[in-house]
């Protein structure tokens, strides 16, 4: 992979994963309550804003990435986000990784590696 493409790919994984984790942290706060009060509580705290910031940055990075690689290849390489989020969820939110999940993660990672090696 070309240098800039690699940097954009890594930035995309990082921003997407951080964004999802930030939203998870915002939505998973038990003290937030229900309904409109929940939204008010979330918007008064940094997590949801961190998530939005990541997504805005990701928008720019993703379009730059896709304009530099063939679309089919870009979308396949982008599938690594699934893997990154599941692994991050395991460490930060102690989400369980069942054998079926691990198999899925390994298959997606292998697929991305195959496409990446050919790129």
């Amino acid at each position: 992979m070309h240098g800039l493409v690699l940097i954009l790919w890594l930035a995309n994984v990082l921003l997407d994963t951080s964004g999802q984790l930030a939203f998870k942290a915002a939505a998973g706060d038990d003290r937030a309550g229900d309904g409109l009060a929940r939204w008010r509580y979330m918007f008064a705290r940094p997590w949801i804003w961190a998530g939005i910031g990541c997504y805005v940055a990701e928008f720019v990075v993703w379009i730059a990435f896709l304009s530099l690689v063939p679309l089919s290849e870009g979308v396949l390489l982008g599938s690594i986000n699934i893997v990154a989020i599941m692994i991050a969820g395991r460490f930060l939110f102690s989400e369980r990784l069942s054998p079926l999940r691990v198999t899925g993660i390994l298959l997606v990672a292998a697929g991305v590696a195959i496409v990446g090696a050919g790129a």
Partner: peptide
């Protein structure tokens, strides 16, 4: 865009992985 053999192989692995994760 050309669809290469490596792309098809990679796509098959990714789709199989997504199906596993969906079942999980």
């Amino acid at each position: 865009e050309p669809v290469t053999a490596t792309q098809i192989a990679g796509a098959l692995a990714i789709v199989a992985g997504i199906v596993c994760l969906a079942f999980a």
